Simulated scan of single mutants.
Amino acid sequence: MLAMKAIKKSLILIVDDTPQNIQVLGNILYEKGYNISISSSGAQALQSINKQAPDLILLDIQMPEMDGYQVCEVLKSNPLTKDIPVIFLTAATESENIVQGFELGAVDYIAKPFNVAELLMRVATHIELKLKREQLQQINIWLEDKIKERTFELEKANAELLKLDKVKTDFLSMISHEIRIPLNRIKEPIELLKYKVENKSLAELVEIIDESVVRLEKFSSQAMEITQLRTNRYVKNNTEVSIAGIIEYALLSIQKQLTEKMVNIVLNIQKDQKITGDSDLLVKCFANILRNACKYSQNEGKIVIGATELAEELIVEIKDFGLGMDNETVNNLSEMLTPGEIQFEQNIGLGLFHSKLLAEAHDGSIQIKSALGKGTTVTVTFPNNKSKLD
């Protein structure tokens, strides 16, 4: 087995019986600084994992003799390998195939042909989730030790202090339990933990983890919703909704960022302009776009939001006057291929890709126009069927 090593880099095992797929994935991930090991069969992969456990496994489903489902089942039945995140590689997008993978313990799937931005984001997200879980376990050990150290002192306190001690002990016990459960239950305990830790070094570590959890929560939520949208597993609740109301809720979701940068919002939308769709999805669609517009606007800048109703279309334009992008980046984002380096690192590509799928779920589309130093205009177009409820 071939292995490419780098110091202090995450190890990714690629399991695929097609050499071309291995070469493509290996080159993409190696260029991003990951260690790569490869296996061309399920049996070879299991032997490799027994020798050196990877941080993440990219596992092809369709392989001779031992397919990806069987390999995953073996891994998840072994206490030594059950926590290694497995992402399935598949050309099939049928819901039942994907659901089977999740039921066997896979954390995600990536469809062939690979979208590079989506591939890298999902790989980075699940590797970072694994690392954060390990760090949280270390904090849990520290908390348990600290509880033991404090118990004797707290037992000497008076009745009121004993009552407070019980509250604190219950609280810390709850934290110790909650940090072992999935990401969507970690955020609140970490927020509470920040105000209880006195050790400066540990407080800084908790702050880093807290920021990462928030970011990963957003990535994970977007990735899951993208999966649901791409496999038609999301059931829309369509109603006739006001575009002005949708934009208002989207702006409320980023109010903190708008206030911090003192960005002025100019609305050119009529209250009677409506669209038939799922209000939650539509709010997310515009919130992603507005978040980027705010992020790249100058302090005390301006964002103009307008809507135009035609006979067959409803067009919503969001224009900022911030940093802007060059033509190459605009083309990449428009095609939802690999974004430019800066944009990829700051998650513009994933947010717009998410918005693109949300718009397409309503038979809509997104176009981007931008110029360096002049700002960016994102146009979202929907069919004008406001009187029709799906």
Rank of each mutant, 00 (worst) to 15 (best):
176 S>G: 11
178 E>I: 03
208 I>E: 14
161 L>P: 00
167 V>F: 06
160 E>N: 03
175 I>A: 01
219 F>Q: 10
177 H>A: 13
173 S>D: 12
172 L>W: 06
242 S>Y: 08
190 I>Y: 02
242 S>Q: 04
202 L>A: 00
222 Q>T: 10
239 T>K: 14
231 T>R: 07
194 K>N: 02
183 L>T: 05
206 V>R: 06
216 L>M: 07
164 L>D: 03
168 K>Q: 11
241 V>G: 04
240 E>S: 13
171 F>D: 01
200 K>A: 14
173 S>W: 05
205 L>C: 01
156 K>W: 12
218 K>V: 12
147 I>M: 13
149 E>F: 07
213 V>P: 08
191 E>L: 14
163 K>T: 02
230 R>S: 10
243 I>W: 02
238 N>P: 01
192 L>K: 12
182 P>L: 02
217 E>K: 09
220 S>V: 10
152 F>S: 05
188 E>Y: 01
226 I>F: 04
204 E>C: 02
183 L>Q: 02
234 Y>C: 02
235 V>S: 04
198 E>Y: 11
235 V>T: 11
154 L>D: 02
207 E>S: 09
242 S>E: 05
195 Y>P: 01
201 S>T: 13
222 Q>G: 03
234 Y>F: 13
199 N>C: 11
214 V>R: 15
207 E>P: 00
212 S>I: 11
224 M>Y: 06
214 V>I: 15
156 K>F: 15
202 L>Q: 10
160 E>D: 08
215 R>I: 14
232 N>M: 10
202 L>R: 15
151 T>C: 13
195 Y>K: 13
146 K>H: 11
184 N>E: 10
160 E>Y: 11
193 L>T: 07
163 K>C: 00
209 I>E: 01
236 K>G: 01
223 A>S: 13
218 K>I: 15
168 K>R: 11
164 L>H: 03
172 L>V: 06
165 D>N: 15
197 V>P: 11
186 I>Y: 01
182 P>R: 05
152 F>H: 01
234 Y>K: 07
154 L>W: 02
203 A>G: 03
217 E>W: 04
218 K>N: 11
180 R>G: 00
155 E>P: 00
209 I>Q: 05
199 N>P: 10
189 P>F: 06
177 H>W: 09
235 V>E: 08
204 E>K: 15
240 E>M: 13
145 D>G: 10
188 E>K: 12
231 T>E: 02
206 V>N: 04
190 I>K: 07
181 I>V: 08
171 F>K: 06
222 Q>S: 09
243 I>T: 03
172 L>C: 03
186 I>A: 05
204 E>W: 05
236 K>Q: 11
228 Q>E: 12
214 V>P: 00
156 K>H: 07
179 I>A: 00
229 L>M: 09
202 L>W: 04
242 S>C: 06
146 K>C: 02
161 L>W: 03
169 T>Q: 15
215 R>F: 13
233 R>T: 06
148 K>L: 10
190 I>P: 07
166 K>E: 06
152 F>W: 01
217 E>H: 07
178 E>T: 03
229 L>V: 05
226 I>P: 01
176 S>Y: 09
223 A>E: 12
200 K>H: 09
237 N>S: 10
204 E>L: 15
212 S>V: 05
202 L>K: 14
155 E>A: 10
208 I>P: 00
190 I>A: 04
175 I>G: 00
180 R>I: 06
194 K>A: 02
209 I>N: 02
244 A>S: 08
